[in-house]
Computed example of a mutant assay.
Amino acid sequence: MTDDIRVINVLLVEDDPGDVLMTREAFDEYLHNRLDVVTDGAEALSYLRNEGQYADAPRPDLILLDLNLPRRDGREVLAEVKADPGLSAIPVIVLTTSQAEEDVLRSYQLHANAYVTKPVDFDRFIDAIKQIDHFFVSVVQLPGARD
Score class of each variant (00 low, 15 high):
59 R>E: 08
60 P>Y: 00
61 D>F: 00
61 D>K: 03
61 D>C: 04
63 I>Y: 15
64 L>W: 03
65 L>K: 01
66 D>Q: 07
66 D>E: 10
66 D>G: 12
68 N>K: 07
69 L>D: 02
71 R>K: 14
71 R>F: 13
72 R>Y: 14
73 D>R: 05
73 D>N: 08
76 E>S: 12
76 E>V: 05
77 V>L: 15
79 A>S: 11
79 A>M: 12
81 V>S: 01
81 V>T: 06
82 K>P: 02
82 K>F: 12
84 D>I: 11
84 D>N: 15
85 P>E: 13
86 G>C: 07
87 L>V: 10
89 A>N: 10
89 A>H: 09
90 I>F: 07
92 V>M: 07
93 I>S: 03
93 I>Y: 02
94 V>N: 01
94 V>R: 00
95 L>T: 02
97 T>W: 00
102 E>K: 14
102 E>V: 12
103 D>T: 09
104 V>A: 09
105 L>T: 13
106 R>M: 11
106 R>I: 14
106 R>V: 07
106 R>L: 12
108 Y>D: 12
110 L>R: 01
112 A>K: 03
115 Y>S: 02
115 Y>D: 01
116 V>Y: 01
116 V>I: 12
118 K>S: 10
118 K>E: 06
119 P>R: 05
121 D>C: 06
122 F>G: 03
124 R>E: 07
124 R>N: 06
124 R>K: 09
125 F>V: 05
125 F>K: 09
125 F>Y: 15
127 D>P: 04
128 A>P: 04
129 I>T: 07
131 Q>P: 05
132 I>Q: 11
132 I>L: 11
134 H>V: 04
135 F>V: 09
137 V>T: 06
